[in-house]
Design a binder for these strands. Structure first.
Length: 785
RNA sequence: GGAGGCAUAGUCUAAUGGUAGGACGUCAGCUUUACACGCUGAAGGCCUGGGUUCGAUUCCCUGUGCCUCCACCA
């Protein structure tokens, strides 16, 4: 072992070693206890940034600890190509439009992205030392996953859990597609707030007068004394002449506008809530293409209709006031067109009746950190609607469903037909109700959460050969970010419960996010992305992992250059200690002395703490404790025994080797590369037989190695040395400057020799001195040369 | 509007019902046969107000500030 630690070439070489030795493979034949992890499949959308690495590194450190504890690790990896980001990526890369290419062909292309990006992701994850088993790779668009997703739907339908209902949905009239909340953007717009008088008591301010023909009710606040008498009355709508009822609801802000609101189906989200809550009439004024459907305005765009209606209202004397305001509207982020609400038939999973069950399951799950449980509870308690799982999109996993052309009855696919594309495939059987053989396919696709909520079942091969159901399900651990507790975590519990009546995992580990140096989330639009590959190359994986392990689980952490420096210093220090041992110790034999037993006992107490911290998913605390001990070990113990080493006395060798190996093992989960490099060079086949430190046994605390007397004398010796160091510093002496005599009151046993050796003292004497060491009952007398 | 988190030296951060630990930075000393990416020493800190307590940085309440998730924006 020579020169400095070169992490660039070491990390590369070691990654190859791990590959060759297959240390991450799940062993199907082993009878060791299984530890199975349900991991978040990253979206295939482009390049990874260090925010991604942050959570992954935290998870991996925990998994590495578990591996050293002797578990048979099932650590799969998925790639998510079932979603809008991948759809956009594929369309761009292949210069195609999904809808024109056809679903089958497009899915083929999407599956091909797996091959290309698998290599890219694999190289990044390998560089990070993510210890997943690549033979367990799945994609969320693969054949098996499509089967699982469709089978899940079919089972839920048969259970009576899946149903179809007309529902207002967010709709982009330009793209003629449903959009999700996530695809919305706010746009501030100058518009007119038009105050319309219905009658002498009813005046309403609105930004969307063109929806007047779609008005189905008028709302006032129940606390609004002025309007109390109006509640329950019918009011005539200007221009259109129909009558609508006045209803009291607390969602109305009495201070806004006139304090009265018209509810139109549908102008905004509140209209939808009211429509559902009060069972209001459905009166649509706008169609799929965003054009008016009302007589007299047919075919007009809403804005044109608005002008015309306001004009007519003015002429009729209904307009009291027009006020210019700035107003936020929702637009579709892709095409920037304004969003409307359109009514479509949608599939739902009925689960509101399961709230109590779901809360009970949430309470059974062991949350790390604990407080994340609140978010889940809060979400479940406030659920108001069933789970909408259909999306009016072209790309996605199709519903395995047709409808009978003559009676409309639902016709499910047969299990052996899966995966099925109803747009192309035909049902095997006739209509159960009327016997017709003519069917209309369901064109919608399943929401991506309907699929990703199955990851534990996907990993267990639930829908196909079921080969891992007994072995890994329920899984040991789910790892994920806190932002998707209400989506991924929640829906996974729902599905697992519905299909297996079980909680899908025992523990859940929720990570925070890695942020840019200013504490802002990394986003393409913010232009603050710190690239994963570049960072790993520049600083090495151990440094990036050190950064990730520096913050407590669940907390956000900004990327700091100084963490990289600290990590590199630690790696370098480890390397230098290794070099020192390598150069000076032929073997790890020798009879330990007092000070050796002292550091051994110290090390074991630290091991006890570190183990407990890891058991509590506190990789951050474990890393801190292990690191702190290492610096203590090298600045103290190593200095104390140097004189013996240089004097060809081998009595410290045993301890030096064992304690340093113990330290390396404690740091191995967080810094897998440098610890492995040292392990291979220094300890493999000498102190440990394992092919890799990462499959070596986690050390155990054994009381028999703790000698209380040595602990006491070693602590005293350490205090004395500390004091002498200070004394030499105050006297502007070099630390190895010779001292004629040192008188110490405490009983140092044979550690007195180490004090003399470390501090270059000619004569050690036991007795009272004139100087008292603070915070101890030890007194000393120091005589210079 | 609902929920959750955070507040500790110039910066990042740990633990804790009784003298608050570490890292970076700063200052000073030391070429000490692994390491100047080092060693040794020094200076420097608990957001406001109230409560519980013999004692609160820690527990409770309040305020303020910051962050996140969810909902909403006629």
């Amino acid at each position: 072992m020579l020169g400095k630690y070169d992490y660039k070439q070491a990390e590369k070489r070691i990654a190859e070693l791990w590959n060759k030795e297959k240390i991450y493979d799940f062993d199907e034949k082993s009878d060791k206890p299984v530890y199975a992890i349900d991991t978040p499949p990253p979206t295939i959308s482009g390049r990874l940034h260090i925010g991604h690495l942050f959570g992954l590194a935290q998870h991996d450190s925990m998994v590495r600890y578990k591996r050293m504890r002797g578990y048979n690790i099932f650590y799969p990896i998925g790639l998510d190509n079932n979603g809008l980001p991948t759809e956009i990526l594929v369309e761009k890369e292949h210069n195609v439009v999904a809808e024109k290419l056809g679903r089958e062909k497009f899915i083929e292309l999407v599956e091909k992205t797996k091959e290309k990006y698998e290599e890219e992701y694999k190289s990044v994850f390998h560089a990070l030392a993510l210890s997943v088993d690549w033979s367990l790779l799945y994609t969320t668009m693969s054949k098996d996953v499509r089967i699982a997703s469709q089978l899940s739907f079919m089972e839920l339908y048969k259970m009576g859990r899946a149903y179809r209902k007309e529902t207002p949905t967010l709709w982009c009239p330009k793209d003629r597609t449903a959009v999700s909340q996530m695809e919305l953007e706010d746009k501030s717009e100058n518009t007119k707030f038009v105050y319309i008088r219905f009658d002498k008591d009813v005046e309403i301010a609105t930004t969307r007068p063109e929806l007047l023909p779609a008005i189905v009710a008028i709302f006032v606040n129940p606390e609004d004394k002025k309007r109390e008498k109006l509640v329950g009355k019918m009011v005539e709508v200007p221009l259109f002449g129909n009558e609508v009822k006045v209803i009291a609801d607390q969602r109305v802000d009495p201070a806004k506008g006139t304090g009265m609101v018209m509810c139109c189906t549908f102008g905004d989200q509140t209209d939808i809530e009211w429509y559902k809550a009060y069972n209001l009439e459905l009166r649509m004024a706008i169609d799929d293409s965003g054009r008016m459907t009302v007589e007299g305005y047919k075919g007009m765009k809403p804005k044109e209709a608005r002008e015309k209606i306001v004009d007519e209202l003015r002429k009729g004397g209904y307009v009291l006031k027009e006020q210019e305001i700035e107003h936020d509207t929702k637009i579709h982020e892709r095409c920037k067109h304004e969003i409307e609400f359109i009514v479509k038939e949608q599939w739902y999973i009925r689960y509101l009746d399961l709230k109590d069950e779901l809360l009970r399951l949430g309470a059974q799950l062991k949350w790390h950190p604990e407080y994340m449980h609140h978010r889940y509870d809060n979400w479940v308690q406030n659920l108001q609607w069933d789970w909408g799982i259909s999306r009016q999109r072209f790309f996605g996993i199709p519903f395995p469903v047709w409808y009978c052309k003559s009676c409309g009855e639902v016709r499910l696919a047969e299990k052996e037909q899966l995966p099925v594309n109803p747009l192309v495939d035909k049902p095997k059987l006739k209509c159960e109700k009327c016997g017709s053989a003519e069917f209309v396919p369901e064109a919608d696709v399943l929401d991506t959460w309907a699929t990703s909520s199955l990851t534990p079942l996907i990993n267990a091969h639930w829908a196909t050969d079921g080969k891992y159901m007994d072995k890994i399900y329920p899984m040991s651990l789910r790892t994920q970010g806190h932002d998707i507790i209400t989506f991924w975590l929640f829906t996974t519990i729902v599905k697992s419960y519905l299909h297996t009546k079980k909680l899908p995992w025992a523990d859940v580990m929720i990570n925070g996010h890695g942020l840019d140096p200013h504490g802002k989330p990394m986003h393409k639009s913010l232009g603050n992305i710190i690239d994963a590959v570049g960072t790993l190359e520049k600083y090495g994986a151990d440094s990036v992992r050190y950064w990730a392990a520096s913050s407590n689980l669940g907390e956000e952490a900004s990327f700091q250059e100084k963490d990289m420096t600290s990590a590199q210093r630690l790696a370098n220090k480890l390397w230098n200690v290794a070099k020192f041992i390598d150069q000076n110790c032929k073997d790890f034999g020798g009879q330990p002395k007092e000070i050796d037993r002292w550091i051994t006992a110290r090390a074991l107490y630290v091991l006890k703490d570190v183990t407990a911290l890891f058991e509590d998913f506190n990789y951050a605390g474990a890393k801190r404790a292990a690191e702190e001990f290492f610096w203590f070990f090298s600045d103290n113990y190593l200095e104390f025994v140097k004189y013996r080493i240089y004097g060809k006395d081998t009595s410290a060798n045993f301890t030096l080797g064992h304690v340093f190996l113990l330290t390396l093992k404690m740091l191995a989960p967080v810094m897998p590369f440098v610890t492995e490099e040292i392990y291979q060079n220094l300890f493999r086949d000498k102190l440990d037989k394992a092919v890799s430190i990462h499959v070596s046994a986690w050390p155990t605390f054994d009381k028999k190695w703790v000698d209380e007397n040595s602990l006491k004398q070693g602590d005293a010796a350490q205090k004395v040395i500390e004091y002498v160091r200070q004394w030499k510093h105050n006297n502007k002496m070099a630390l190895n400057a010779e001292l004629a005599e040192l008188v110490v009151s405490a009983d140092l046993g044979d550690t007195a020799a180490d004090v003399a050796g470390a501090m270059n003292v000619k004569k050690m004497t036991k007795g009272q001195g004139s100087q008292k060491i603070p915070d101890t009952d030890i007194s000393v007398e120091i005589t210079g040369s």
